[in-house]
Design a binder for these strands. Structure first.
Lengths: 361, 361
DNA sequence: TTGTATGCGTTATCAC
DNA sequence: GTGATAACGCATACAA
């Protein structure tokens, strides 16, 4: 229970908004010790007797004092905060289930260490660079999360040059050795999707990929391709899209216009997949009778799509927590814990089904 | 273009990660002035000659110096940061288009003033209170945004007692006088939805509302009711849900089980509406032939739902920007600008249609 | 314009 | 090992 009401014996002058801020000296005076003693107690350092510690804690509690993050940041040269720069088009930002979940997970890891998360949402690359510079130059944060990693991304090096610690969130197999990485496992989900489709009898399995600049886009495409090869299936057509609904619909039309259209499509995310179903339906192609569709993300709407969407689910919250723990450790100069991320789940719903010949068989 | 490469004449010792942090004194020395002069220039204050200003800016640029947010925060007793505490269930968080867009808008308003946004995602009320206390006690932020305002919410008062400025984001008509508010205009959108349905011949128009604790839930319900009354229509059935897909589906079944089921339903958000369509379809009720459906939010998926969803769109980004400008002004003791928010839009798509008798007429 | 005190903890140095 | 004292971090406010 967090209560900051002034202790009854504290003082009658309290409660007025003009109450002076309680500072470490007040606590020290009340406990009859020096400021350093108070500081030591609040930083879990030895050198304070049990009785003194007791008095100090009580005094602090009675006065409602907590160390000022501002003063602490200055004297420690340490912001006790980490940053997240999100570069996304506004439209994509509000569909993407990644960031909200990731941030929720990050908080779990940060709150435990009393770190704050400083957020910056930007629209383009120039603002993104500026954002990292602001973080570093003004010493607002000690480290940053790097998400949406792009091919040839220089941010890991940039961060290092700016003196920021960084944790890269990227597909495992794309994780370079530039700094510590939290590995996503997109490939596994896509592989399972392809295997699932194969087991339903599909042989022409296409892929609609997202914006090609991202390493996770490429990771998913590669996983799709490799799974097909492993299964001895022909490598199907891949169409480049950009994760938006409009692009997913367009890509779907392209695929269905082919002389030999696919009987199944693996999409780079749920939004494109659902838009793809919509596009297919518009032209009389039924899902899943004529076309099976697999998404990626398992957005909360996926079960309510018509038909309910078969898709890949990852535990993004767990990544966030792991990334936060890692970054805090890095910032504090500790060895990052080895994280164990939960495996991806493949969720079979109504948008995938047996090929026509199988069904008739 | 933001570049922090050490000036060519800067020093050869640069680039090493062990470079000492450049401080204001270094800039002052290089420019041959006092620290105060440098400070004045960087705070746009008079008292520095044009030539000195010139030298100072050049020196700072060459050294790549910018005032440290940490030191500035301490000496100004001002964090130059504002906070946003998001309390949401993980599931709802990742569907809600509100927060990403709101945050994107907030950034626009904050970046202009060089403020940072500190974010905290929490799961329950106790953590929420703790989060505000942490913000205030540690002086991490100067003000906060209060979103998802609940009925009988004490956060405006709490914030004041904690010494935090606050901007409340709530429906216009629910805005109390506890602090400054940015008025959302949910009512207008709902009213237009009801009028739209009425013009299509609907007379039994139900409402599926979200979690009843929020003032915006209630604002939408009231708007629905008042619109019906204004039009001389009977007040339909209202079912309480909680903004999740599951609750929307359940509520829809409840409504369709009525002896006289509605011919149209206005939902509190798009997720429930789409889940409602799914539920209706499952039991053979066709949308829009047998049932018209209106959502709220216009999520990016709305155009790709089957059928495409008729819904209400608000410019949440604009709110965010307005809220940020207002909060910064408040924090800096200025008169908040009068904001002019764009009106809501009502987007008619395929999920609403004429009633059966109209169509046959 | 400049020197200097100030904000508030943290930490190195010293004394017991 | 306990504890106190003083310097430090860095920019800003205010008197000079």
């Amino acid at each position: 229970m967090i209560e900051s009401e002034p202790s009854p014996n504290g003082a009658a002058e309290a409660e007025s908004s003009s109450r002076k801020r309680v500072v470490i000296g007040d606590v020290a005076a009340r406990a009859g010790v020096s400021k350093s003693a108070v500081s030591f107690v609040f930083n879990n350092r030895s050198g304070v007797s049990a009785s003194a510690r007791e008095r100090i804690l009580r005094a602090a509690d009675e006065l409602g004092w907590r160390p000022s993050a501002r003063a602490r940041a200055l004297s420690r040269s340490h912001a006790q905060a980490v940053g997240l720069v999100i570069r996304r088009d506004p439209e994509l930002l509000s569909t993407d289930p990644f960031f909200p979940q990731f941030m929720a997970g990050v908080e779990i890891g940060l709150t435990a260490h009393d770190y704050s998360l400083v957020l910056q949402v930007v629209a383009d690359e120039q603002s993104e660079r500026a954002a990292y510079h602001r973080f570093a130059d003004a010493s607002r944060v000690d480290g940053v999360f790097l998400t949406d990693v792009r091919i040839g991304d220089t941010r890991p090096q940039d961060a290092r040059e700016l003196g920021l610690r960084a944790v890269v969130i990227a597909p495992e197999d794309a994780a370079s050795d530039d700094g510590v990485a939290i590995g996503m496992n997109d490939s596994d989900g896509v592989r399972r999707a392809v295997h699932h489709l194969h087991s339903l009898g599909h042989r022409r399995i296409a892929h609609v990929m997202g914006a090609p600049m991202y390493v996770h886009t490429e990771a998913r495409r590669r996983a799709w391709r490799e799974a097909l090869v492993d299964l001895g299936l022909p490598v199907g057509t891949v169409v480049t899209a950009d994760f938006t609904g409009a692009s997913g619909a367009r890509a779907t039309h392209e695929l269905l216009d082919l002389p030999e259209p696919p009987t199944a499509i693996v999409y780079g995310n749920d939004l494109m997949a659902i838009a793809g179903v919509s596009a297919a339906t518009d032209r009389g192609v039924r899902v899943p009778e004529d076309l099976s569709v697999v998404g990626f993300d398992d957005i909360p709407l996926a079960p309510y799509a018509l038909p309910p969407l078969t898709t890949v689910r990852q535990n993004v919250v767990a990544w966030g927590t792991a990334a936060a723990q890692t970054l805090v450790a890095l910032v504090e100069g500790r060895q990052p814990p080895t994280v164990r991320l939960p495996p991806v789940e493949f969720v079979v719903r109504g948008s995938t089904g047996p090929t026509r010949d199988r069904r008739h068989a």
